Every structure is written in C-alpha cells, then in structure tokens.
Simulated assay, not measured.
Amino acid sequence: MARSAQLAVLVALLVATAPAVSAVTCGQVVSMLSPCLNYAMGRSPTTTPACCAGVRGLNNAARTTADRQTTCNCLKQQTSGMGGLKPNIVAGIPSKCGVSVPYAISPSTDCSKVH
C-alpha cells in the first residue's frame, strides 16, 4: 500500500474512533439567540429578522450530535437560570422562524437523547 493511502486509512480510523467534540459553545448559543430575548420574554409581539437569523445560524452550526447536545444543554441552562422567559414562547421560536429543530426546547428535554 502506498504511503499516502496508508496515511488516508489512518486518518479515517482516527476520525471514526475519535470521541464527539462539540464545535458549538454555549457562548455562541447565547450570542446567536440574544436578539430573541425581547420576544422570549413577551416584550415584543413578533420575532425579529436578527432573531431568526440567529436561530438559522445556530441550526446550521449544530450539525453533529455533540453540537446539538451542547446547544440543547445550553438552552436548558439558560432558560432555567434566566427569569422572565416564557417557556411556551421560547419553544415556538424555531417554528416562527421557519426552522425545524430535532428536539423540543423544554426544561424537561433529555439532551443526552438528542441526536
């Protein structure tokens, strides 16, 4: 086997066996969704274009299981620790922005089961 082919096989094995590491951080989640705060607190009647751009950007960034679990855990942490948020409004933000999220945004969501 040629050296370049051996290297390619080695890289493929390392990638396949490496533990999942999230590329999305909680700081990024908070930053991307901060334009949604007024709506999430019931202070604004509609989502803003900036809010929906953040939701779409976050959904596009969270493509792996690890990214989605990090995002889910961050959302749970932020929504439970921040007073004034309306859970029913928060849960509906993705659909208001035309984005499909593969889990319910809820304090009861088990983020370890998000894939």
Rank of each mutant, 00 (worst) to 15 (best):
residue 50 A to R: 14
residue 90 V to E: 05
residue 12 A to M: 12
residue 83 G to L: 12
residue 28 Q to Y: 09
residue 3 R to Y: 08
residue 2 A to S: 15
residue 10 L to V: 15
residue 72 C to H: 01
residue 110 D to M: 08
residue 95 S to V: 12
residue 96 K to H: 12
residue 63 R to W: 01
residue 38 N to H: 07
residue 66 A to F: 07
residue 12 A to W: 06
residue 75 L to V: 03
residue 9 V to H: 07
residue 110 D to T: 13
residue 16 A to I: 06
residue 88 N to W: 00
residue 66 A to W: 05
residue 84 G to T: 11
residue 107 P to V: 11
residue 97 C to I: 00
residue 2 A to I: 15
residue 96 K to M: 12
residue 79 T to Q: 07
residue 33 L to P: 03
residue 29 V to G: 04
residue 115 H to A: 15
residue 78 Q to K: 10
residue 111 C to D: 10
residue 113 K to A: 13
residue 96 K to P: 03
residue 6 Q to K: 15
residue 106 S to A: 12
residue 80 S to I: 08
residue 70 T to M: 05
residue 74 C to E: 05
residue 33 L to S: 01
residue 73 N to E: 14
residue 71 T to L: 02
residue 45 P to L: 14
residue 26 C to T: 10
residue 29 V to A: 01
residue 90 V to D: 02
residue 56 R to P: 09
residue 109 T to L: 05
residue 92 G to P: 03
residue 107 P to M: 07
residue 88 N to G: 11
residue 3 R to S: 14
residue 100 S to D: 10
residue 85 L to G: 11
residue 111 C to E: 09
residue 90 V to C: 03
residue 19 P to L: 01
residue 46 T to Q: 12
residue 87 P to E: 08
residue 65 T to Q: 08
residue 95 S to L: 08
residue 49 P to D: 13
residue 29 V to E: 04
residue 78 Q to G: 01
residue 56 R to L: 13
residue 13 L to C: 12
residue 35 P to I: 07
residue 102 P to K: 00
residue 54 G to Q: 04
residue 82 M to S: 13
residue 98 G to T: 07
residue 5 A to E: 13
residue 17 T to Y: 06
residue 89 I to S: 04
residue 54 G to R: 02
